[in-house]
Design a protein around this nucleic acid. Structure first.
Lengths: 255, 255
DNA sequence: GATAAACTTCCATTGCATGAAACTTTGAAA
DNA sequence: TTTCAAAGTTTCATGCAATGGAAGTTTATC
């Protein structure tokens, strides 16, 4: 009998452990030592070592000259075939590039993933305001422009379900009251775009519009700007045009 | 004793099998049925089913309403923390966007990976010529602009090692003779840029320049154009400036 | 050069993965 | 609607691959 296993109570399978190890790599952990991985996963060093070695062999992880582990190119390559990259990102990128050039602002592309806004892509330059969104990162639906759009176009049942969950309030301006949020979402649907003002970051606001496909909202494009530059009419027009262009690319790509 | 296992002779470990399953998703296989996965990996259906189910549970794969499997968002999210996405892609994207807007041509960003050019990013529009490079895809070093650059800036030992491997010749114009290639690479180093003319695709050529960091070539940016539009001087100037800009972003990002 | 921390290897033990077979669901044709 | 084949799912006895404590080895630090 294995005492350690009996203690943890979780006879976690190898594969689940491997996925847990890979999951250790997040926005705050781009590189990890073996010890760090063992601590994060609470796995015995030897077990951790063996699994990590196999992942390195398979190219899912790589080890730098600093002896730290990083996500490997093999894993990255496979991920590029996810529908997210393969279809959406690829189709949207030229349009996002144009948007970025036209506005010089922070451009984001997001989809709904597990009750959060998943940022599929982000274009930032020197001119644009600093933001916390990053490609591959998740942010709440109710405090971001793209999130509001993604939520607004869900079924009312899904919206109500979201409203029953505890909603974080990162800023005083963040809207977390269910009634207020319901009204906000109705307005988003009516206007066809969402606005946020300092609901996530002080001094910044955002505008976002839906990317529709077969009558469903499959993604959202947004722009994050300094409050003083929040020229709603102009940005909405530019974004709407971009969203239409991306929809068209998506249709063409699937033919 | 397990007869089937004895026959294959390879008591492949679970984790290796799981990685093999994930590896089934490639440019030609964006979605797969369970049966297809079982065929590709030559695994028994039941075994395959169990592993795939675990991967779906972990979000590494997802199953659509068409019952086909695709790469999951979890895997994609983790991959975004690879140094490739995290540092290089993120730093380069605004510059690539500008390049794309300026030229309207096919822009590629690649790194050296396992003896091939790994395309980290690609920007294509309606105006640009069709290419076979795609983000996440691999192409040979000696038949592509970015590949020649990546190879040219390797150590001479590494170059010689590459020259001893059998070199594919996808086009009549492709350079595969070691001596000719050595000369070509020397020229690339001397000029600071690489050119290809119909070495990969008929009617297209490419120009590429290195992205240097601490005296080492860490990546290459290239542009693929119709042969008639191959205006070397102008493109080299634009690319060189872009490469310098990306180098600068890389340095700033690591501070 | 000594010491600690990080990492790697070893190996007896056993519990998890295994895969053939039986069963269920799906989708298309009659 | 019924029928059928193909695709997918579950089961379970078996034994091998995974386990993790402990003992070695390397690397970094003072």
């Amino acid at each position: 009998m294995s005492p350690a296993r009996a203690q943890t109570g979780a006879p976690t399978a190898l594969l689940e452990r491997a996925m847990e190890i890979l999951g250790c790599f997040d926005p705050t952990h781009h590189d990890l030592t073996l010890t760090e991985i063992a601590e994060l996963t609470k796995l015995p060093m030897s077990t951790c070592h063996r699994i990590v070695a196999t992942l390195v062999d398979g190219g899912f992880l790589s080890r730098g000259s600093d002896r730290k582990f990083r996500v490997g190119t093999r894993l990255w390559t496979i991920a590029q075939h996810a529908p997210l990259s393969d279809r959406l990102r690829e189709s949207a990128l030229p349009t996002l590039a144009r948007l970025y050039e036209e506005t010089g602002e922070n451009i984001t592309l997001a989809v709904l993933d597990r009750g959060q806004a998943l940022y599929v892509d982000r274009l930032v330059g020197e001119r644009s305001v600093p933001t916390i969104s990053r490609a591959g990162g998740h942010l709440p639906l109710h405090t971001t422009g793209v999130g509001k759009v993604l939520l607004a176009y869900q079924s009312s049942a899904a919206i109500e379900r979201y409203l029953t969950t505890p909603l974080v309030k990162p800023m005083p301006q963040s809207i977390v009251e269910p009634d207020a949020l319901r009204a906000e979402l109705a307005e988003v649907r009516a206007r066809g775009y969402a606005i946020t003002r300092q609901e996530m970051t002080a001094g910044s606001g955002s505008i976002a519009v839906p990317i529709m496909r077969n009558g469903k909202c499959v993604a959202a494009v947004g722009v994050i700007v300094h409050l003083a530059r929040l020229d709603t009419n102009r940005l909405v027009a530019t974004l709407t045009q971009a969203a239409a262009s991306i929809s068209k690319e998506l249709d063409e790509g699937s033919r």
